[in-house]
Simulated assay, not measured.
Amino acid sequence: MKKLTRITLNPEVMGGKPCIRGLRVTVGMVVGLLASGHSIDDILKAYPYLEREDIYEALSYAAWRADEIEVSVTVG
């Protein structure tokens, strides 16, 4: 995986959650917006200080973390 330079972890920002470039925008928030049907353009319009590459890196980080952590899922 390429080095992710836009994802930051700082215990003083958003409780140490992974954020975009030290901003108070978490990877989880970006992924959640995409998962709920918002387009990248929608997100960029709502958060004009974000860049398209920020969104792609958030997705890359989330995919990497999902692959690293085994989560038990119970259906029904």
Rank of each mutant, 00 (worst) to 15 (best):
14 M>K: 15
53 E>A: 13
76 G>F: 12
12 E>G: 04
31 V>A: 09
47 Y>P: 02
50 L>N: 02
41 D>G: 02
44 L>Y: 00
66 A>Q: 14
63 A>D: 08
2 K>Q: 09
30 V>K: 01
68 E>C: 07
75 V>H: 13
25 V>Q: 01
22 G>I: 02
19 C>G: 04
35 A>C: 06
60 S>G: 09
16 G>C: 12
21 R>V: 00
17 K>L: 15
59 L>T: 04
63 A>G: 06
18 P>A: 11
62 A>G: 00
68 E>V: 02
48 P>M: 04
30 V>S: 00
60 S>Q: 15
73 V>C: 06
45 K>C: 10
29 M>Q: 11
25 V>W: 01
35 A>W: 03
13 V>H: 06
6 R>M: 04
45 K>M: 10
62 A>M: 08
5 T>L: 03
12 E>C: 04
66 A>P: 01
9 L>H: 04
75 V>Y: 13
34 L>R: 05
2 K>L: 14
14 M>Q: 11
68 E>T: 03
29 M>W: 09
64 W>L: 11
76 G>V: 06
68 E>N: 11
50 L>T: 05
19 C>V: 13
24 R>H: 10
32 G>I: 05
74 T>K: 10
33 L>G: 14
65 R>P: 00
44 L>S: 06
16 G>V: 11
53 E>G: 01
42 D>H: 14
11 P>T: 07
73 V>S: 05
41 D>K: 14
32 G>K: 04
61 Y>L: 01
36 S>D: 10
35 A>G: 05
2 K>Y: 07
23 L>R: 09
4 L>T: 05
47 Y>E: 02
36 S>C: 12
22 G>D: 03
18 P>W: 14
40 I>F: 01
66 A>K: 12
62 A>T: 01
9 L>R: 13
